[in-house]
């Protein structure tokens, strides 16, 4: 599903079920947050960024509205939560990988409002109102994304750990118009490291999809 195609009338999802330390205090806060939801205008999720309050929450609990793979979420989170940890630990979207957790390896690459970014180097709360796409959002086992198919055909991976990041980055590389040649792909994919050294096959997979002219 594309970032833009968030179904308008979709239910707001609350993250309570994924929270592990459901102590009473937390439960109370969460209940208040849910009660408050009825008044949250839809534009908050759709990117009405200027309508945001200047200060809210305390040091352990802030509100977050975010759309992930077309699904809207209203959550209460610790502001220290990175987008990567939110995806993996809170929402169980473990396709996005944690390699270095310091912005060096590209394993955590996701799209924020359609642009490739590193989910380990942004606090989730900073992405309030954005639309995030992860590897789970670009294809399904039944209907793979063209670049996923190309990775399989070209053996674009060995252990597979870097692969979700490679694919998210590769899709952007093509969309940005930076996949015109092998040299260009190598340059614009340099932020995605592969310890298994599958680079030549990754480059070939990206070039094949680019040259096929298929829409990514």
């Amino acid at each position: 599903m594309k970032d833009e195609e968030i179904p308008a009338g979709e239910e707001l999802v609350c993250g309570v079920e994924n929270r592990f330390d459901e102590d009473r205090r937390y439960f109370l806060k969460q209940s208040v947050a849910i009660a408050g939801l009825a008044f949250v205008p839809g534009s908050l999720v759709a990117g009405g960024e200027n309508a945001l309050p200047e200060s809210f929450g305390d040091t352990e609990n802030v509100k977050l509205s975010i759309a992930i793979n077309g699904k809207k979420h209203q959550l209460n989170i610790d502001p220290r939560t990175t987008l990567l940890d939110l995806l993996r630990e809170r929402l169980a979207l473990t396709g996005t990988k944690k390699g270095c957790d310091l912005g060096h390896c590209g394993a955590c690459t996701v799209h924020i409002n359609g642009q490739r970014t590193l989910s380990c180097l942004t606090f989730a709360v900073m992405q309030n109102g954005t639309k995030v796409t992860t590897i789970e959002g670009i294809g399904t086992p039944e209907k793979l994304h063209p670049l996923q198919t190309a990775f399989i055909r070209h053996d674009g991976f060995q252990c597979g750990y870097c692969t979700p990041g490679q694919i998210m980055s590769g899709v952007s590389c093509i969309r940005e118009g930076n996949a015109g040649s092998e040299a260009e792909v190598r340059e614009y994919m340099s932020g995605n490291l592969c310890r298994c050294g599958a680079y030549p096959n990754i480059v070939n997979a990206i070039l094949e999809v680019k040259n096929s002219g298929e829409k990514v």
């Binding site: 200047e54 200060s55 305390d58 220290r80």
Partner: peptide, 15 residues
């Protein structure tokens, strides 16, 4: 990481 308060001003002066 040490806990912090997160603030999101929309005006330069406030920031």
């Amino acid at each position: 990481m040490k806990p912090f308060q997160y603030l999101r001003p929309s005006k330069l002066k406030a920031a």
